[in-house]
Design a protein around this nucleic acid. Structure first.
Lengths: 200, 200
DNA sequence: GAATGAGGCTTAGAATTTCTCTGTCATGGC
DNA sequence: GCCATGACAGAGAAATTCTAAGCCTCATTC
């Protein structure tokens, strides 16, 4: 059986907004701006030729059609979420935001993480910085650099090494303690080991 | 309840390929190239960190994981398809491929159909041509032009009019008889009437 | 064995979609 | 009246998706 499906990302935006009756809150949940949610829902309404929401100055009301649509969509997404969890228990919540030092940057490929590499699903494009405060504040999830620095309160481990002709430079991964052993971090570390060398 | 969802378009590609055990056939069903399906499935596998297919020189086999995933996905898409049908009975199957004459083109906005307009969900970017054979062969779904021409075997109707200072130019819509009254055509015609004038 | 066709893979770049940012508008509360 | 809130709109940036072309591994035919 072949399905005829509307824009799936638009459905996701609608479903989140319908649960909260708010583009603003849905945007936060989806990790995008409210303008993006607004555009997605509007495009979906145009495709379907139906009105799903009544817009108020401060929030949304579901139309009867929107109200009828929501339960099935929520159920479908629940099925997808549940079955995805069953086959891939550790689906990453989002990509890690990593900072890398200028020095380390020269050793990495220009478009690291390589788009076709599995790591790119777990780590976003890095920011070039060594500012620990960005990690402490939560703006970044971690830092990768070649210098060892004091990083009180954070996990600070030697995770890989760059073998050069005369010396071996260790790579340090500094991140909140809670993220140190998480799946994304583990994938990041093993990717670094395959690009460079183990800390051995 | 908030869902954690993998790339939905990737799921769509996987589900179609899994039903057919063929990227080629799935591509035909989805209206894209097999390369596109291949890339989508590969990206999904990378995100989930699982193998969903075993690739053979001529076709696919599902892995155990892929086999486990398929029924739930098919069910979720069936729910979405069914509930979408219930609220929007005439979801367009695809966008109409329309040819417009050079002359008519000068009267239309440069980026017609306007992306934010409802028509853009029903009609793709037009091709500039007056070649009726493209309609007969199925390469185009219809032609819009200002000259009346003989078009045996096709529907050939005056659908709107351009009011100029000294004269009124009718717009002719030529298409296969079967498409003349379909939803996309009707949206197209009413859009032309709102841009220009009724044939009155 | 050689030639050919089938279908998946890969890559680069084109095309499209999605996103962000900024400013506007209509409230709603003080 | 002022300010805050949240949806809307548009332009352009960013990301994703797509196409086209060529490569690879078979499987079949001559």
């Amino acid at each position: 059986m072949s399905h005829r499906l509307p824009p799936l990302n638009g459905l996701r935006a609608f479903e989140a907004a319908a649960r909260h009756l708010s583009f603003k809150i849905a945007a936060r949940e989806l990790g995008v701006t409210s303008g993006a949610v607004s555009q997605q829902v509007k495009a979906l309404e145009a495709t379907l030729q139906v009105e799903l929401f009544r817009r108020l100055p401060r929030g949304l009301l579901l139309t009867d059609i929107g109200q009828a649509y929501l339960p099935d969509l929520s159920e479908a997404f629940r099925i997808i979420s549940k079955s995805t969890e069953a086959i891939a228990p550790a689906l990453p919540a989002r990509k890690l935001k990593i900072g890398i030092s200028e020095q380390l940057k020269t050793h990495l490929p220009a478009n690291w993480p390589i788009p076709s590499d599995a790591l790119s699903a777990h780590v976003g494009k890095p920011v070039v910085t060594t500012d620990l405060e960005l990690v402490r504040s939560g703006d970044l999830d971690g830092l990768l650099q070649l210098q060892q620095v004091a990083a009180h309160g954070l996990s600070n481990e030697k995770v890989a090494a760059i073998k050069m002709p005369t010396v071996t430079e260790p790579i340090y991964y500094i991140c909140p303690v809670g993220l140190a052993g998480c799946r994304q971090s583990r994938v990041l570390v093993s990717s670094l080991i395959s690009v460079f060398s183990d800390v051995g």
